[in-house]
Write a protein that binds this DNA or RNA. Sequence first.
RNA 1: GCUGAAGUAGCUCAAUGGUAGAGCAGCUGAUUUGUAAUCAGCAGGUUGUGGGUUCAAAUCCCACCUUCAGCUCCA
Length: 646
Amino acid sequence: MSSIKITFPDGTVKAFEQGTTGHQIAESISKGLAREALALEVNGEVWDLARPISTDASIRILKWGDDGGKHAFWHSSAHLMAEAVEALYPGTKFGIGPPIETGFYYDIDMGDYALTGDDLEKIEAKMYELAARDVPYIREEKSWDDAVAYFKKKGDPYKLELLEELRGETISFYHQGNFTDLCYGPHIPSTGRIKAIKLLNVAGAYWRGNEKNKMLQRIYGVTFPTKQELDEHLFRLEEAKRRDHRKLGQELELFHLTPAVGSGLPLWMPKGTIVRETLIEFLKQEQRKRGYVSVVTPHIGNLELYRTSGHYPYYKDSQFPPISLENGEEFLLKPMNCPHHHQIYMARPRSYRDLPIRLAEFGTVYRYEQSGEMNGLTRVRGFTQDDAHIYCRHDQLKDEIKRTVELTQLVFQTFGMEVRTRLSYRDEKNVEKYGGEAAFWERAQKEIKEAADEMGLDYFIGIGEASFYGPKIDFMVKDVLGRTWQLGTVQVDYVMPERFQLEYTGSDGQKHRPVIIHRAPFGSMERFVGILIEHFAGEFPLWLAPIQVAVLPITDAHREYGEQVHRQLQQADLRSELDERNEKIGYKIRDWETKKVPFMLVVGEKEMQANTVSVRQHKKGDLGSMTREAFLAKVVEAVENKSLTV
RNA sequence: GCUGAAGUAGCUCAAUGGUAGAGCAGCUGAUUUGUAAUCAGCAGGUUGUGGGUUCAAAUCCCACCUUCAGCUCCA
């Protein structure tokens, strides 16, 4: 028998018999590794450990710590769940059951039967029972015809539909115990690896994600190799609920949502408004340093404006219906600020010497989001963009892109937020979705990529994620529940200058088209604050905290001294509150702790005599006494530096 | 928009066809207090809205509204 060369991740090469398996390779290294191994990466593809290797290959043994290992684990768990469902509810039809970022799901069709929480518990129990048999996941290949025959006999229309796209190919199947599934794999060696199981919820999902198709029931679950890891995961989910901005927004009186005003139309309470306005002032200051000028435009605009831009009727479905006047004029609640800004650009002739012109506005826009889409502050129907449009010459474009990216990065750095950067391109297969000519797109996508590369950005590419007028650089952040939201964005636009016939006079005396950059570092104030609440778990850094200091006199005898301290803080432009309530100090402290106020100053007899304050920091407790000046200097500095730690 | 679940006092929750209740918050009074809850009293509700079944509905049925989970969509 001939031998093959296996290259390990560290570069060492070892000879194995042809047809050796990942399992055998793992065993050749150590028993422990063989016990932990879940799958095998072969030349960049993930394989089962039991699959024979017939040619020279570079391999990596995947364990729980590797994404490939986790995915195989959860994929196998989905099959185990399907087996349990089939055992408990015979006749169930199966859609797809893939692993996801955390866990897995399976889409199933049970006719009219709607699963309940009790059903999930039953299925979970059955899964434990089936896992305990510790049977192997076995790969098998069938001809396409045999595969079709199998699912025809079983009566699984969804699998047959999937097979239609694989017509003529060799089809791989996996089975474990009594369950057989159409599947690419890979899978883990056996069901016994799955030691801890939790089915989380059941929700509707359209077959193949198309709302014209039948709605299936999707069961979400997660599994782990140990009970301890499951417990930790469940604890993290609880923690996430605790940080949920919708809950904290109410508890801390930051914003309010009520059907009396309308779904998706948040009201900013006084404390939330402080956070919002502090953020706005921060960005305005940074923009002034970078040559932006502020403009203000109205909340509605003539419908013709949006016909010119192409937004109407293209995005009709996601706009509030037009307001019609008796004379036939129609107005739209503005779904974006750009057309108004373009009119400001057009208000007078522009010279190449004027460019770049950077028009900035915290402009409120309205979009008719679908009713099932609203979510706290992160998805709303009325929101304020930290919008700006940069009109520049082509030779200035790349530099301007870099400057906007730099500003966006500064924003996220200031809050210590982790972002993922996406270059959002258009989908070449679906070009009618986008405006403008192909040449513009190619140029814009190239320029964005060059700017990103020159800045050394760590990005990934999102095909089909572009806006309809141009490609973007998007900054994505996850909320506590793991959902990804787009915050900041930088977009290059060659389309609007054409549509609006924007011009400037060049040094050659000829008319030229400017290029536009649309950019919003926060994205929307609503979404950004929502994410920020979760990021800080409601414990805002000092410079953002709605109330920065609470002054707590011990008894009435110290009220006047407390008032002096409070006034001194206010004079220094700090947000202070004096707690004059007739309560014990322990009560007041507890109250201000729950409000997550960064500092409490306890003032009693001692402090009054020594002209000091006794400082207590949120979550850190008593810091001891300090002179009033020392405390003031400390907090003023932390505010100025936008310090995250104090 | 679709599928499913839910909606009781400002908040968190109880009451399964028979007089809507508790804790916290609020108000009043007493207490003058030293680092996470002092005590007592008062007030607070057309049980999301509208209709229906019933001698009787928070509870059962229908429609709508809102919220939640997910799908779809997202300038």
